[in-house]
Nucleic acid binder design. Sequence first.
DNA 1: ATGGCTTGAGTGTCAAGA
Length: 254
Amino acid sequence: MKIATWNVNSLKVRLPHVLDWLAANQPDALCLQETKTEDKGFPFDELAAAGYRALHNGQKTYNGVALLTRSEAVDVHVDIPAFDDPQKRVIAATVDGVRIVCGYMPNGSEVGSDKYAYKLKWFAALTDWLKGELTRHPKLALLGDYNIAPDDRDVHDPVAWKDKILCSEPERAAFRALLDLGLADAFRLFEQPEKIYSWWDYRQMGFRLNRGLRIDHILLSKPLAESCRACIIDKAPRKLERPSDHAPVMAELA
DNA sequence: ATGGCTTGAGTGTCAAGA
Protein backbone atom coordinates (compact mmCIF):
# COMPACT_ATOMS: atom_id res chain seq x y z
CA MET A 1 0.00 0.00 0.00
CA LYS A 2 1.32 3.42 -0.98
CA ILE A 3 0.20 6.49 0.96
CA ALA A 4 1.23 10.05 0.20
CA THR A 5 0.78 13.70 1.08
CA TRP A 6 1.12 16.89 -0.96
CA ASN A 7 0.42 20.53 -0.26
CA VAL A 8 -0.71 21.62 -3.73
CA ASN A 9 -1.19 25.36 -3.03
CA SER A 10 -4.49 25.56 -4.97
CA LEU A 11 -5.95 22.41 -6.49
CA LYS A 12 -7.47 24.38 -9.39
CA VAL A 13 -4.04 25.52 -10.52
CA ARG A 14 -2.29 22.23 -9.72
CA LEU A 15 -4.84 19.69 -11.01
CA PRO A 16 -2.76 18.75 -14.09
CA HIS A 17 0.26 18.08 -11.86
CA VAL A 18 -1.84 16.01 -9.46
CA LEU A 19 -3.34 13.92 -12.25
CA ASP A 20 0.09 13.30 -13.78
CA TRP A 21 1.54 12.39 -10.40
CA LEU A 22 -1.30 9.98 -9.60
CA ALA A 23 -0.84 8.26 -12.97
CA ALA A 24 2.92 7.97 -12.50
CA ASN A 25 2.92 6.84 -8.87
CA GLN A 26 -0.43 5.06 -8.36
CA PRO A 27 -0.75 5.74 -4.61
CA ASP A 28 -3.61 4.03 -2.77
CA ALA A 29 -4.22 7.22 -0.80
CA LEU A 30 -3.13 10.80 -1.44
CA CYS A 31 -3.70 13.52 1.15
CA LEU A 32 -3.91 17.05 -0.25
CA GLN A 33 -3.57 20.35 1.59
CA GLU A 34 -4.42 23.90 0.57
CA THR A 35 -7.06 22.97 -1.97
CA LYS A 36 -8.26 26.58 -1.51
CA THR A 37 -11.77 25.88 -2.75
CA GLU A 38 -15.23 24.91 -1.63
CA ASP A 39 -16.79 21.64 -2.83
CA LYS A 40 -18.40 23.39 -5.79
CA GLY A 41 -15.00 24.14 -7.31
CA PHE A 42 -13.52 20.73 -6.46
CA PRO A 43 -12.58 18.50 -9.46
CA PHE A 44 -14.50 15.37 -8.38
CA ASP A 45 -15.18 14.30 -11.99
CA GLU A 46 -11.61 14.64 -13.25
CA LEU A 47 -10.31 12.64 -10.28
CA ALA A 48 -12.99 9.96 -10.73
CA ALA A 49 -11.95 9.64 -14.38
CA ALA A 50 -8.41 9.04 -13.10
CA GLY A 51 -9.67 6.25 -10.83
CA TYR A 52 -9.78 8.15 -7.52
CA ARG A 53 -12.61 8.80 -5.10
CA ALA A 54 -12.31 12.09 -3.24
CA LEU A 55 -13.31 13.30 0.21
CA HIS A 56 -13.00 17.04 0.71
CA ASN A 57 -13.16 19.42 3.65
CA GLY A 58 -12.83 22.73 1.86
CA GLN A 59 -13.38 26.45 2.21
CA LYS A 60 -13.06 29.50 0.02
CA THR A 61 -9.60 31.02 -0.60
CA TYR A 62 -7.66 29.41 2.27
CA ASN A 63 -6.86 25.98 3.70
CA GLY A 64 -8.90 22.99 2.54
CA VAL A 65 -7.88 19.33 2.75
CA ALA A 66 -8.79 16.31 0.65
CA LEU A 67 -8.28 12.57 0.74
CA LEU A 68 -8.04 10.78 -2.61
CA THR A 69 -8.32 6.99 -2.56
CA ARG A 70 -8.57 4.15 -5.03
CA SER A 71 -10.82 2.04 -2.80
CA GLU A 72 -13.71 3.20 -0.67
CA ALA A 73 -12.89 5.30 2.40
CA VAL A 74 -15.14 4.68 5.39
CA ASP A 75 -15.81 6.22 8.82
CA VAL A 76 -15.12 9.74 7.53
CA HIS A 77 -14.45 12.58 9.99
CA VAL A 78 -13.67 16.24 9.41
CA ASP A 79 -11.96 18.72 11.75
CA ILE A 80 -10.66 18.10 15.27
CA PRO A 81 -13.55 17.20 17.61
CA ALA A 82 -14.08 19.54 20.56
CA PHE A 83 -11.82 22.17 18.98
CA ASP A 84 -13.77 25.14 17.70
CA ASP A 85 -12.04 26.15 14.48
CA PRO A 86 -13.56 27.66 11.33
CA GLN A 87 -10.42 26.76 9.35
CA LYS A 88 -10.71 23.55 7.35
CA ARG A 89 -7.55 21.65 8.18
CA VAL A 90 -8.37 18.01 8.90
CA ILE A 91 -10.06 15.09 7.15
CA ALA A 92 -9.78 11.47 8.27
CA ALA A 93 -11.08 8.14 7.06
CA THR A 94 -10.27 4.43 7.04
CA VAL A 95 -8.83 3.07 3.78
CA ASP A 96 -8.02 -0.62 3.32
CA GLY A 97 -7.95 -1.04 7.10
CA VAL A 98 -5.60 1.90 7.69
CA ARG A 99 -6.77 5.02 9.49
CA ILE A 100 -5.58 7.96 7.37
CA VAL A 101 -5.52 11.40 8.98
CA CYS A 102 -4.80 14.27 6.61
CA GLY A 103 -3.77 17.54 8.25
CA TYR A 104 -2.88 21.03 7.15
CA MET A 105 -1.24 22.32 10.30
CA PRO A 106 -1.21 26.10 10.89
CA ASN A 107 1.74 28.09 9.64
CA GLY A 108 2.04 30.32 12.69
CA SER A 109 3.23 33.39 10.77
CA GLU A 110 5.78 34.61 13.31
CA VAL A 111 7.01 33.42 16.69
CA GLY A 112 5.04 35.21 19.41
CA SER A 113 2.16 36.26 17.14
CA ASP A 114 -1.53 35.43 17.66
CA LYS A 115 -1.24 32.92 14.81
CA TYR A 116 1.69 31.28 16.57
CA ALA A 117 -0.39 30.87 19.73
CA TYR A 118 -3.17 29.38 17.59
CA LYS A 119 -0.67 26.97 16.01
CA LEU A 120 0.49 25.65 19.38
CA LYS A 121 -3.11 25.33 20.66
CA TRP A 122 -4.04 23.54 17.43
CA PHE A 123 -1.23 21.00 17.84
CA ALA A 124 -2.20 20.40 21.47
CA ALA A 125 -5.81 19.71 20.40
CA LEU A 126 -4.64 17.42 17.59
CA THR A 127 -2.41 15.46 19.96
CA ASP A 128 -5.19 15.09 22.55
CA TRP A 129 -7.57 13.82 19.89
CA LEU A 130 -5.10 11.39 18.32
CA LYS A 131 -4.31 9.81 21.68
CA GLY A 132 -7.85 8.39 21.68
CA GLU A 133 -7.86 7.70 17.96
CA LEU A 134 -4.80 5.47 18.32
CA THR A 135 -6.63 3.23 20.79
CA ARG A 136 -9.53 2.91 18.33
CA HIS A 137 -7.32 2.57 15.25
CA PRO A 138 -3.96 0.90 15.99
CA LYS A 139 -3.01 1.19 12.31
CA LEU A 140 -2.97 4.97 11.98
CA ALA A 141 -1.04 7.33 9.70
CA LEU A 142 -0.93 11.11 10.12
CA LEU A 143 0.06 12.76 6.86
CA GLY A 144 0.30 16.39 5.93
CA ASP A 145 1.95 19.77 5.92
CA TYR A 146 3.06 20.07 9.54
CA ASN A 147 4.70 23.44 9.09
CA ILE A 148 7.45 22.22 11.41
CA ALA A 149 11.03 21.27 10.55
CA PRO A 150 11.63 18.69 13.31
CA ASP A 151 15.42 18.89 13.41
CA ASP A 152 18.31 21.02 12.16
CA ARG A 153 18.95 18.29 9.56
CA ASP A 154 15.64 19.34 8.02
CA VAL A 155 16.74 22.96 7.50
CA HIS A 156 19.06 24.26 4.77
CA ASP A 157 20.47 26.97 7.05
CA PRO A 158 19.86 26.08 10.70
CA VAL A 159 21.69 29.17 11.95
CA ALA A 160 19.55 31.60 9.95
CA TRP A 161 16.37 29.73 10.92
CA LYS A 162 17.20 29.22 14.59
CA ASP A 163 14.14 30.00 16.75
CA LYS A 164 12.30 31.26 13.66
CA ILE A 165 8.83 30.13 12.62
CA LEU A 166 8.74 26.44 11.58
CA CYS A 167 11.91 25.80 13.61
CA SER A 168 11.26 27.22 17.09
CA GLU A 169 11.67 24.99 20.11
CA PRO A 170 7.96 25.06 21.14
CA GLU A 171 7.02 23.94 17.62
CA ARG A 172 9.58 21.15 17.71
CA ALA A 173 8.26 20.14 21.14
CA ALA A 174 4.76 19.93 19.59
CA PHE A 175 6.16 17.61 16.94
CA ARG A 176 7.87 15.46 19.57
CA ALA A 177 4.58 15.27 21.50
CA LEU A 178 3.11 13.52 18.45
CA LEU A 179 6.06 11.11 18.36
CA ASP A 180 5.49 10.48 22.07
CA LEU A 181 2.06 9.08 21.21
CA GLY A 182 3.98 6.21 19.63
CA LEU A 183 4.19 7.62 16.11
CA ALA A 184 7.33 7.40 13.98
CA ASP A 185 8.58 9.80 11.30
CA ALA A 186 8.49 7.48 8.26
CA PHE A 187 11.24 9.42 6.46
CA ARG A 188 13.67 8.83 9.34
CA LEU A 189 13.02 5.09 9.50
CA PHE A 190 15.51 4.84 6.64
CA GLU A 191 18.97 6.07 5.75
CA GLN A 192 18.46 9.22 3.73
CA PRO A 193 20.79 11.48 1.80
CA GLU A 194 21.60 14.84 3.38
CA LYS A 195 19.80 18.07 2.49
CA ILE A 196 16.48 16.54 1.52
CA TYR A 197 13.59 18.96 1.86
CA SER A 198 9.88 19.12 1.00
CA TRP A 199 9.36 22.87 0.62
CA TRP A 200 11.33 25.63 -1.10
CA ASP A 201 10.48 29.34 -1.21
CA TYR A 202 9.27 30.57 -4.59
CA ARG A 203 11.52 33.59 -4.22
CA GLN A 204 15.26 34.05 -4.65
CA MET A 205 15.70 30.80 -6.61
CA GLY A 206 15.00 28.82 -3.45
CA PHE A 207 14.53 25.52 -5.27
CA ARG A 208 17.50 25.83 -7.61
CA LEU A 209 19.75 26.64 -4.66
CA ASN A 210 18.09 23.88 -2.57
CA ARG A 211 17.26 26.38 0.16
CA GLY A 212 14.50 24.26 1.62
CA LEU A 213 12.89 22.84 4.72
CA ARG A 214 11.45 19.41 5.44
CA ILE A 215 8.02 20.30 6.84
CA ASP A 216 5.75 17.73 5.16
CA HIS A 217 5.68 14.44 7.02
CA ILE A 218 4.17 10.99 7.33
CA LEU A 219 3.90 9.76 10.91
CA LEU A 220 3.09 6.08 11.42
CA SER A 221 1.77 4.15 14.38
CA LYS A 222 3.90 1.22 15.50
CA PRO A 223 2.25 -1.55 13.43
CA LEU A 224 2.51 0.59 10.30
CA ALA A 225 6.09 1.67 11.02
CA GLU A 226 7.04 -1.98 11.31
CA SER A 227 5.55 -2.66 7.89
CA CYS A 228 7.00 0.45 6.21
CA ARG A 229 9.40 -0.40 3.38
CA ALA A 230 10.33 3.04 2.09
CA CYS A 231 9.65 6.76 2.42
CA ILE A 232 10.67 9.25 -0.24
CA ILE A 233 10.19 12.90 -1.14
CA ASP A 234 9.57 13.32 -4.88
CA LYS A 235 11.20 16.52 -6.12
CA ALA A 236 10.09 15.94 -9.73
CA PRO A 237 6.84 17.98 -9.61
CA ARG A 238 8.71 20.95 -8.10
CA LYS A 239 10.65 21.21 -11.38
CA LEU A 240 7.55 21.65 -13.55
CA GLU A 241 6.06 24.91 -14.83
CA ARG A 242 3.95 26.66 -12.17
CA PRO A 243 4.79 24.16 -9.43
CA SER A 244 3.48 23.97 -5.91
CA ASP A 245 6.13 25.18 -3.49
CA HIS A 246 5.83 21.77 -1.75
CA ALA A 247 6.90 18.34 -3.00
CA PRO A 248 4.89 15.15 -2.37
CA VAL A 249 6.01 12.70 0.31
CA MET A 250 5.17 9.01 -0.11
CA ALA A 251 5.50 5.93 2.11
CA GLU A 252 5.22 2.33 1.03
CA LEU A 253 3.63 -0.08 3.49
CA ALA A 254 3.80 -3.85 3.21
C1' DA B 1 15.56 46.17 2.71
C1' DT B 2 9.18 43.67 7.11
C1' DG B 3 11.75 43.37 0.40
C1' DG B 4 12.11 38.90 -2.72
C1' DC B 5 6.99 34.92 -5.55
C1' DT B 6 2.37 32.76 -5.84
C1' DT B 7 -2.60 32.39 -5.15
C1' DG B 8 -7.43 34.01 -4.62
C1' DA B 9 -10.34 37.67 -4.11
C1' DG B 10 -11.88 40.68 -7.83
C1' DT B 11 -10.12 45.29 -10.83
C1' DG B 12 -6.83 47.75 -7.61
C1' DT B 13 -4.08 45.80 -4.49
C1' DC B 14 -4.02 43.13 -0.37
C1' DA B 15 -3.84 38.91 2.93
C1' DA B 16 -1.50 34.81 3.58
C1' DG B 17 1.75 31.53 2.94
C1' DA B 18 6.57 29.45 5.08
